[in-house]
Design a binder for these strands. Structure first.
Lengths: 237, 237
DNA sequence: CGAGGTGTTGACTGATGTCAATGATGGTGG
DNA sequence: CCACCATCATTGACATCAGTCAACACCTCG
């Protein structure tokens, strides 16, 4: 098993010799409501996890890349949908197989738990963004987040600051809790402020990473303490 | 060990004979940035988990009640703050003790993992709320969420629809990603629509639970599939 | 070349935020 | 016990950011 403490990237041996599956762009591998039988590890490409409400509103929960894991749930059924954003390749194994593997391999259990914590921490990052940040701040953070994802997943980009954006503006909007027009406008605003330039609609060149970091309000994505605030005093309620 | 599959409530024997600690209102038991040495189980009272950004913006991540667990992290340091909203009682045990306990007790490991999943699912619920719902929808959901928390934690309320609100409007606002004035206005609006009435500022009587559910867009909080949407078709991206 | 999907931009609307005044609540000390 | 003060909650008037609706540009695929 390989595990990257910094990023939560994992490769479980449970997936060794597991069957591979190719996905077309837009193909759905997990439907919300289906019985949760399988878990997947991404070999290549980009997948999107989302949840759709009764009235059709959609929230994208995460974009996943190589070595990310998907299919986790405590319940019998998936409560989210997973779809390929680009052509992708995944390996699948059954939940039973994973359970058994975790039961047998003692170290794996702890590693796996840490991985789940990572997912939780990402989710809490998103909560902070959606609850507290403005549109342009969210987009800045999103670009930095993608930059890190590519670094971490070992993508061979010609330039680490030239970020591919395989997903649509609508997908980004649904991730950031905005409308697609607002996403477009925020891209334009970032360009106007000379923090990025846009070679084309599906890539962004980060020309001022520090400026983006300031806007996003983070020190460093790799820090476990991502949002250190002032130490609070006890306050009588 | 007691574990409630529906709610994720847990009581680990790891806490048996663990030292008890009393908390005053407003007292902080976990400071973001401190080394994560301890974990806690709540015996009584209400605790609040939050994160504060560099510029002082605060996001409340959750309100916790009896039998909820707090102190989880994959990293060496806490990246969140935990504070008592009411006078509270907790039992603490060291992370090491918990780790060891989980290593020895085979079943505990799986139970514990399920518990972490519950926390994750709550966090994803919050992501959906913050990203997709309006102010009044978020507040409706919040009231239903509290109602369930009290039910589940076995609180002996004279009326299960008369919900105590021990936290301040500011706390609620920081949880729902709103300003306190907007929270006030949304309370007034719910009252105007006759979905709730307000005996006083720190309790709400839910007079039309179904109406609140419709507004919040959920079928039932206890359902694992909380937000069933229409089954999606593969779409070429 | 045309059609349809996607992205950008503009004009306007509306929901939430901001600022400020007033009203309620709760704790403290006379 | 009550009066006072500080804090918190509510409400109103106004500002602002993001959403809506619509036009147009662009790209891809036939």
């Amino acid at each position: 098993m390989k595990y990257n403490e910094q990023t939560g990237e994992i490769y479980l041996d449970a997936f060794t010799s597991a069957p591979e599956r190719k996905l077309r762009t837009g193909e759905i591998i997990i439907h919300a409501g289906d019985t949760a039988k399988q878990v997947f590890n991404i070999i290549e490409g980009c997948l999107m996890v989302s949840r759709v409400g009764k009235d059709g509103r959609r929230q994208v929960m995460s974009f996943l890349f190589r070595n990310n894991f998907v299919g986790l749930t405590a319940t019998e059924k998936y409560f989210f949908t997973v779809q390929a954003v680009t052509p992708a390749k995944v390996v699948c194994c059954t939940r039973n197989h994973l359970e058994k593997y975790l039961a047998d391999e003692h170290d794996a259990e702890k590693t796996f738990r840490n991985m789940v914590f990572r997912v939780l921490e990402n989710s809490l990052d998103l909560v902070y963004s959606l609850g507290q940040r403005t549109a342009i701040e969210r987009l800045s953070l999103f670009l930095l987040y993608l930059r890190r994802q590519y670094q971490v997943s070992g993508a061979e980009l010609p330039n680490p600051d030239l970020i591919p954006l395989p997903m649509s503006r609508q997908d980004i909007a649904d991730f950031l809790g905005l409308k697609k027009e607002t996403v477009s406008r925020s891209f334009s605003e970032l360009e106007k402020r000379q923090l990025i330039s846009r070679p084309d609609a599906h890539s962004a060149l980060l020309t001022e990473v520090e400026g983006l970091r300031n806007l996003a309000g983070i020190m460093d994505f790799s820090s476990p303490l991502r949002l250190a605030g002032p130490r609070l005093k006890d306050k009588p309620g």
